[in-house]
């Protein structure tokens, strides 16, 4: 099991593991958020890694999961909404690096 090392409020960038590590197959980090920076909104717990579970493997090492909050005006160049609007998704720790 991987140790949780991000704290609420930390600025984190979503990695692009397809590019960085040649990761392929089942992934739960949508492309639209990869490379973008958000803030840890909360720690959600430790869960089996879906990239492993999806292939009948045991999901180990289990990964800390975080809810990450993004500002919409930073995610989308043409965002049509309020400057305060946000988007939150859950991201597994191995997809995140400190920003």
């Amino acid at each position: 099991m991987s140790v949780a090392h991000f704290a609420v409020g930390d600025r984190v960038q979503v990695r692009n593991l397809e590019v960085e590590e040649g990761l392929a197959g089942h992934m739960r980090a949508p492309v639209y958020c990869r490379g973008f920076t958000g803030e840890i909104e909360r720690f959600c717990g430790i869960f089996g890694n879906p990239e492993s579970l999806a292939y009948g493997r045991d999901g180990q090492p289990a990964q800390p999961l975080y809810r990450v909050r993004f500002r919409q005006i930073e995610l989308w160049p043409d965002y049509r909404g309020a400057a305060a609007d946000t988007l939150e998704i859950e991201v597994y720790q191995h997809w995140l690096k400190a920003s």
Partner: peptide, 14 residues
């Protein structure tokens, strides 16, 4: 250079 990522067909966000 990072090659552009080809989005999987189910990954439609945005």
């Amino acid at each position: 250079q990072n090659p552009p990522v080809t989005k999987a067909y189910h990954d439609v966000g945005g």
